[in-house]
């Protein structure tokens, strides 16, 4: 019962956040200089055509009405019409077509970053102060210092142009071929994952070292449990909650990185859609993408909260 209340409260707060964020994005986009009608119809459009367009898109209604109309549409899955693409593509269909690619690359990068950071962070912490620790720690700070999109090109230079292992450009949609997506998405995911892994492993190392000092670790060793057992069941298990929380805080950097890296590798993701929309000053596309990105981060944070609740016996009981 308590869990259910907590869940409802948390979900309600997330929904409120999304609403507030949508309003902010709406107002921001509304303030963008330029006339949407002129942008859509071109400079030569007749005043009548412009007036028709403005009426059709409710551009002359009060702001509050416009926002409510947008919101009503958004709830039904209608995010408006793209003005930059001929044929009047709906923004929702543009996003629906590209979002899976972005989610795939994002999840791929997250998994790689987790794998790298758990390995490096654990080794660094359990070999504290030794060569392995120094190597992992300096490796982490070097990778954190690299712009992810630049790293993308370096990876291309190495693994595509020199070795020819992975394609330098282009992305096979996971819907077409999952293996193809794994293959063609590896370099973009790695480019995002490596700096992230640097950040993650530093956090993991710090929390592990803190946990190593806890009394229950000594107590476990007194019982005669082996090092590996103590590390896994006592140290790592109890460092998980702070680690997962820290990862949740990085969601905005990870998704931010996706936007730029998608351009480098020509991944047709929502980041690319948003950048193209920005170039064309296509307000409905940019607005839709921004809200969807916001939704993803909010959902990730919700998920992190849930996960922490599951990991922590104090809330599970």
């Amino acid at each position: 019962m308590r869990v259910l209340t907590w869940l409802l409260l948390r979900a309600g707060s997330a929904a409120f956040m999304l609403l507030l964020g949508s309003l902010v994005v709406f107002l921001l986009m509304h303030a963008v200089p330029g006339d949407a009608a002129l942008a859509a119809l071109g400079d030569q459009a007749s005043p009548d055509a412009i007036a028709d367009f403005r009426r059709l898109h409710h551009l002359d209604d009060p702001l509050a009405m416009q926002f409510l109309a947008w919101l009503r549409g958004a709830l039904r899955g209608d995010l408006g019409t793209s003005i930059s693409l001929a044929g009047g593509f709906s923004t929702a269909s543009l996003i629906a077509g590209s979002l899976p690619n972005t989610l795939f690359i994002g999840a791929y990068a997250l998994l790689l970053a987790l794998a790298i950071s758990i390995t490096a962070g654990s080794i660094a912490a359990s070999r504290h102060g030794r060569v392995e620790d120094v190597l992992a720690t300096s490796g982490a700070i070097v990778t954190i210092s690299m712009p992810d999109f630049w790293l993308g090109y370096v990876l291309v230079l190495l693994f595509s142009l020199e070795l020819g292992w992975f394609p330098a450009y282009g992305f096979t949609r996971p819907g077409e071929s999952f293996l193809g997506a794994l293959h063609s998405g590896f370099l973009p995911a790695l480019a995002i994952a490596v700096p992230m892994a640097g950040i993650f492993s530093r956090m993991l190392r710090a929390t592990l070292l803190e946990t190593f000092r806890r009394a229950y670790v000594t107590s476990a060793r007194v019982m005669g449990f082996g090092r590996a057992f103590v590390f896994w069941h006592y140290v790592f298990r109890n460092a998980l909650i702070p680690y997962v929380t820290a990862i949740g805080l990085q969601a905005r950097y990870l998704l931010g990185g996706v936007v730029v890296v998608e351009r480098v590798f020509g991944v047709p993701g929502i980041g690319s859609v948003m950048v193209d929309g920005a170039f064309a000053r296509d307000i409905s596309v940019v607005q839709g993408c921004a809200v969807v990105f916001l939704l993803i981060v909010i959902l990730v944070n919700l998920l992190v909260d849930l996960l922490c609740g599951l990991l922590d016996p104090r809330t599970a009981a």
Partner: peptide, 9 residues
């Protein structure tokens, strides 16, 4: 909650 580049864009 906004991805860095999204806010900037």
């Amino acid at each position: 909650s906004f991805p860095t580049y999204v806010l900037a864009l």
